[in-house]
Nucleic acid binder design. Structure first.
Length: 333
DNA sequence: AAAGGGACCTGGCTGC
DNA sequence: TGCAGCCAGGTCCCTT
């Protein structure tokens, strides 16, 4: 599941190839993989309904040079030379694969893009070198001026791409990792800074967390308070800090919250160092390689097994309709 | 404004 | 073996 470390791994892979490149052609194969929110259209100065979503997407991306590849929390975006942004979210199963179009030329085309706004959802008509699975879930293809192509593949279609204008960041700091301007995409204006953002104001974050009468895990997952944390790193961060995920946020001291945030950040840093967490083929980097942090997980996905620290049986519980695993001995309520 | 609950989606797993 | 039903998760939206 792509959370901050996985998205950062992808961002680094993309940044190495995309910065300075120009987008030549985009193709959209599934309607759900493009988001077209009114505020995005407003920011682009176009009226809703005048153009189809694929038309808007190609109009504002084709011919644009990529200036930077940025990230905030689990969101990625490309800064485009025209001043707009190509936003991407990997959802549950999104992948960004970079490959050379020449390597696949002999495999045939994956399908047809209907430029008049219709999109086609392709089934496995052809087989790419990596296998038919990649092709079946191909959602968007972006061709670059150096002959390479970026393929957005997404089995469960929770991920998406979108194009929009920017808004100044509220606090005037840079918009995200590697962003060289003080703007973020308007679609991400509601997303809080993440734990690895140098401009994060930890004091006010702790204040906001302690104002909530909800479980610790629930507030850690709230992207409007702090972004980038998903189920995996929430469980791992809580374990590392010795706090039960079901403990109510306002009953955790400011000092302890500082530990939770610091430990969670540290876990994510270590995950980035090994390319993120892969359980199956759903998460891979831009070259299709998995990450190796799964073997370092202490609690996530280990309900019923022994705690690696004390040997007690790890407990699996449901918190706000989401499962959580913790050690009843090592983590306090 | 905060909190709670459901919807979206699909492959893999469990149980009959 | 086959089938139905459940589970996983991130985000958005609606209701209370």
């Amino acid at each position: 599941m792509p959370e901050l470390p996985e998205v950062e791994t992808v961002r680094r892979g993309l940044a190495g190839h995309l910065v300075g490149r120009t987008i030549q052609q985009v193709q959209v194969f599934h309607p759900r993989s493009l988001r077209h929110q009114p505020k995005a259209y407003e920011s682009l100065g176009i009226t809703s309904g005048s153009l189809s979503a694929p038309q808007v997407f190609s109009r504002f991306t084709e011919g644009e040079q990529i200036l930077a590849v940025c990230r905030r929390g689990k969101y990625l975006w490309l800064e485009l030379s025209g001043g707009n942004f190509l936003v991407a979210h990997l959802g549950m199963s999104g992948q960004m694969l970079l490959d050379n179009v020449d390597a696949h030329a002999a495999d045939g085309d994956e399908g047809e893009f209907l430029g008049d706004g219709k999109v086609v959802d392709l089934t496995a008509r052809t087989v790419l070198r990596q296998g038919p699975k990649d092709n079946r879930h191909l959602r968007i293809k972006i061709g670059l001026d150096d002959g390479c192509q970026l393929r957005f593949i997404d089995q469960r279609t929770f991920g998406y791409m979108a194009v929009c204008g920017g808004v100044p960041t509220v606090d005037g700091h840079k918009g995200g990792i590697d962003s060289h301007r003080s703007q973020i995409p308007v679609l991400l204006s509601h997303v809080a800074r993440d734990l690895l953002d140098p401009a994060l104001d930890k004091e006010s974050l702790i204040g906001a967390l302690r104002a909530r009468h909800r479980p610790v895990k629930t507030v850690l997952l709230d992207q409007q308070l702090v972004s980038g944390i998903g189920s995996i790193y929430a469980d791992e961060g809580c374990f590392a800090a010795g706090v039960a995920p079901g403990k109510l946020a306002h009953r955790v001291s400011a000092k302890k919250w500082g530990e939770v945030l610091a430990q969670t950040a540290q876990v994510m840093e270590r995950a980035i160092a090994v390319g993120g967490t892969s359980f199956d083929s759903l998460y891979v980097d831009v070259a299709g390689a998995p990450g190796f942090f799964a073997r370092s997980l202490q609690v996530y996905g280990r309900g019923g097994q022994e705690c690696k620290r004390c040997g007690a049986e790890l407990k699996k519980v449901v918190i706000q309709q989401r499962s959580a695993v913790y050690c009843p001995k090592c983590q306090r309520h």
